[in-house]
Each structure stands twice: as C-alpha cells, then as structure tokens.
Amino acid sequence: MSIQHFRVALIPFFAAFCLPVFAHPETLVKVKDAEDQLGARVGYIELDLNSGKILESFRPEERFPMMSTFKVLLCGAVLSRVDAGQEQLGRRIHYSQNDLVEYSPVTEKHLTDGMTVRELCSAAITMSDNTAANLLLTTIGGPKELTAFLHNMGDHVTRLDRWEPELNEAIPNDERDTTMPAAMATTLRKLLTGELLTLASRQQLIDWMEADKVAGPLLRSALPAGWFIADKSGAGERGSRGIIAALGPDGKPSRIVVIYTTGSQATMDERNRQIAEIGASLIKHW
C-alpha cells in the first residue's frame, strides 16, 4: 500500500482519535458579512469528516447552483462504474471539434489522439474542462443518470439537468442544476469515506481534487503551510461562485467545507476574496 493510499485508508482512524471539535460562531459572522459585502445569498456548511456531524452552517438547506462543483460527483459516478466493471479508466475516447464547448483548455489539445477516461476526469476536476465533463456525462448516460446515481446514494436534493455550459445559467428560483450545502457536503463525505467506492477509487477521487489547479484564489489562499486540501470550485452566471473541499491540518483532511453564493453584482475577484476570507476565519478558529 502506498503512503497516499495509507493516508486515505486511515482518515477515519486518525479522526477518531482527534480531540473533540467545537464550532466557532466567528466564522458564521464572516459568512454573514460576506453576504453584506456581496449583496447576495451565501450558503455555508462545515462537517466533521469522521462523524458527519454538522459543526457550523448557514442557509444549509437553500438551493444554490452547483456550477462546476458537480464534476466531482460526476467522476465519482464514473469511478463507481469502474468498480462495477462497467468502465475502464484506460479506455480512450475520441471526439471532434464539434464536441468542444466553451472553456476546454485540455480537451482542445487532444482532438487528434483523444483522451482516456482517467485523463478526462483529471481534466474535468483539476482544470474544470467543460468538454471533458460533457464527454464523461455521455459515458454514464447524461445528466439524468448522474441525478439517479445521487438518488441511489441517498441524495434526493442534488440534481443535474443540463450539460456544460448551460448548467451554469443560475436563474433565480430555478431548481435545475442545483444542490443544497448540506446535501453536497453529505454526498461528498460519502464519496470520500464511505463504502460506495473502493479504496482505490476513493484515493483516485481525492487525488484529482488535491491536484486542483484553478481554485488557488479561494480556500487555498488562506491555508497555512502543512495543511491538506482537496477541492473543486465552480463559477456561473449572475454572480455565482462555489467551492467544495476536504481539508485539515497535519497533512490530512478532517472536515468537509461547502460554500456557495449566487445573485451578486460583485466582480469575480471580490467573490473570490470573500470566500478566501471565510476560509481564513475557519482556519483561525479551527
């Protein structure tokens, strides 16, 4: 067993022997301040990774656009098919120029040779490549099948209805392509620590998230040296922004954090800054 596999296998073990965790309302004060600064709703939840206990939450059962955070769930569904012998990570998928959609920095470079399922998941999570996500959605049967996968996990809230990039439209009061912070946090925890996926697939999923290259201005910008984070960000229309993450000190994750916002007129930089400040408060009061 590799060191990384050992780390993920012992996530519940280490967490069980940690000192009790206590909620700190100071972080919620910052979440509410972010709402004021952005002029928009902000949803927040913080779960203990081992027990699933909610440590703090704000608007945990209000719907927010998922945006690209759905790509972690998508690759979880792909990995479940791999575990069941219905898919192979090494299978190569070929596609054409007509398949390319807006923001496809990886797939646009491989029109000639195609990409493997493993490479597509890596591109979808680490670079948020939209064509990679659409190609992977095709392998599982489309958005409705991802929703069905989530329902089978016990998540009857999260739903995907459309493809990239239309799913980022974020129309107010439109339930399409949305989740709730509580539902997303619980589902992410199941994917990373539950028995739904094999140990190898859980490790692969967290490795992809740990290698995320496009979430630097968010929670990662607030992390002290030595902290662990595996995350996936999302951005959408109407001032929408979000991030889902597993993080913790001492090089291992111990909490799940989900943050979503929508309806702001603020710039992307300002949305990023507010999420980073929430992260800084979380870490300060850990």
Rank of each mutant, 00 (worst) to 15 (best):
G85P: 01
Q37L: 11
F58E: 13
T262C: 08
M115Y: 00
P60G: 11
A215I: 02
A211P: 05
I243W: 10
H94W: 13
S264T: 05
L197E: 09
Y103D: 01
G236A: 13
Q97S: 09
W208A: 05
L199G: 03
D177W: 06
D231I: 08
T112G: 10
G114K: 07
A183F: 10
L137R: 04
L111F: 10
G242S: 07
I229E: 00
L205C: 02
L196A: 07
D33H: 05
E237T: 11
E175H: 00
K144L: 08
I140A: 14
P253N: 15
E108K: 00
L120C: 00
L137G: 06
L160Y: 10
I171Y: 00
T261C: 11
T139C: 05
A230H: 04
L47S: 03
R220H: 07
Y95W: 07
T138C: 13
V157L: 05
A235K: 06
E26Y: 02
R41W: 14
Q97R: 05
L55Q: 08
L135M: 05
V72A: 05
K32G: 00
S201N: 09
S57L: 12
H156K: 02
M153C: 13
Q37R: 06
V101S: 06
K109G: 12
D212C: 11
A245Y: 12
G226L: 05
D207T: 01
E61D: 05
G263T: 03
T69A: 04
A230C: 10
Y44Q: 13
T116Q: 14
A280D: 05
L282M: 07
S240D: 00
R59E: 03
E35C: 03
L49R: 12
T187H: 03
H156Q: 05
A77G: 07
I93T: 15
G52N: 03
L197H: 06
N130R: 02
D177P: 04
W227A: 01
A222G: 13
H94D: 13
G263C: 00
E164V: 12
A246S: 12
R189L: 10
L111P: 03
I275C: 09
R271A: 09
I229V: 03
A183I: 02
A123H: 01
S281R: 08
C121G: 03
A170V: 02
T116Y: 05
E108R: 07
G76M: 06
A266H: 15
T131S: 13
L28T: 07
Q204R: 10
S68E: 03
R92G: 08
G263D: 04
T186N: 02
S80D: 14
E164P: 10
I206Q: 09
M66W: 06
N98H: 09
T112M: 12
P172L: 07
I259Y: 14
T131D: 03
D155Q: 13
S128R: 03
S96T: 09
E46G: 03
P224K: 00
Y260H: 01
